[in-house]
């Protein structure tokens, strides 16, 4: 995978590059300023942009705005100091796909970067692959460890959503509203039922759905299945 890293602190940039190279087999290009980003992105096909918000010259928010305005769809992982997290970052309104607050744990950063790239690729080739799970969006078929899964529509939607948010906490409210739609509303109880069915079906998948008490769920990759 190719990553464009925009970070003005050389030491941090160096570490991030090395981690992405070593842990995710990434080829990392680095720039300390935001201005050349747009040109670089149109010149070379990148899988991920890792973007610091506090930059000299135009800041990360502005880079992101210009990028999305120019129709660039590639996944963006935003890095920010704690004082810059406001609702703009929280709502990811400017089109960032994920954000991390400095100082962050390097392994977590690498995991999120990988998840974003996977998601981005899934959107392009219509296939999601996480751990031992494969979802073929075009054929609407899914497999766990090469065995085909039987997934009714709601469970399909739920799994797709969870796989797109591996390692992140998703709220039950959010699941309820994203599952509700033309086919009628879904209750919290129903979500719980779907989750428990998915748990059974994901038993061999190298994935686990954790319950976050009173809030929602967290799909995590089990350690022995990580790194794929």
């Amino acid at each position: 995978m190719r990553v464009l890293l925009v970070e003005d602190d050389p030491a941090l940039a160096n570490t991030i590059s090395r981690a992405l190279q070593g842990q995710a087999d990434a080829q990392v290009d680095w720039t300390a300023r935001g201005e050349p980003v747009l040109n670089s992105l149109s010149a070379d096909p990148y899988d991920l942009l890792v973007l610091d918000i506090g930059l000299p010259g135009i800041d990360g928010f502005e880079v992101l705005r210009r990028l999305r305005a120019a129709g660039q769809r590639l996944p963006v992982l935003v890095l920010t100091g704690r004082e810059a997290i406001d609702d703009r970052v929280h709502g990811l309104e400017l089109g960032a796909d994920d954000y991390m607050v400095k100082p962050f744990a390097l392994p977590e950063m690498v995991a999120r970067a990988k998840a974003l790239v996977r998601r981005g690729r899934g959107m392009v080739d219509k296939q999601i692959r996480v751990a031992k799970v494969v979802m073929d969006m075009a054929a609407h078929r899914a497999w766990v460890a090469d065995k085909e899964m039987d997934l009714p529509s709601r469970e399909w939607q739920l799994l797709e959503y969870l796989l797109a948010h591996v390692g992140k906490v998703v709220s039950k409210d959010h699941l309820v509203s994203s599952l509700s739609g033309w086919e009628g509303d879904v209750s919290e109880n129903a979500v719980e039922v779907y989750i428990s069915r998915l748990r059974t079906k994901l038993a061999e998948s190298g994935l686990r759905i954790r319950t976050v008490r009173g809030f929602g769920y967290l799909l995590e990759e089990l350690a022995d299945a990580a790194g794929t």
């Binding site: 602190d9 030491a11 941090l12 991030i16 090395r18 981690a19 100091g81 400095k102 390097l106 392994p107």
Partner: peptide
Amino acid sequence: LRTPLAGLQSQIELALIE
């Protein structure tokens, strides 16, 4: 203080990984 400390932290993490 924070910026170099964050750098230090991630460098140690990198060293830990390697």
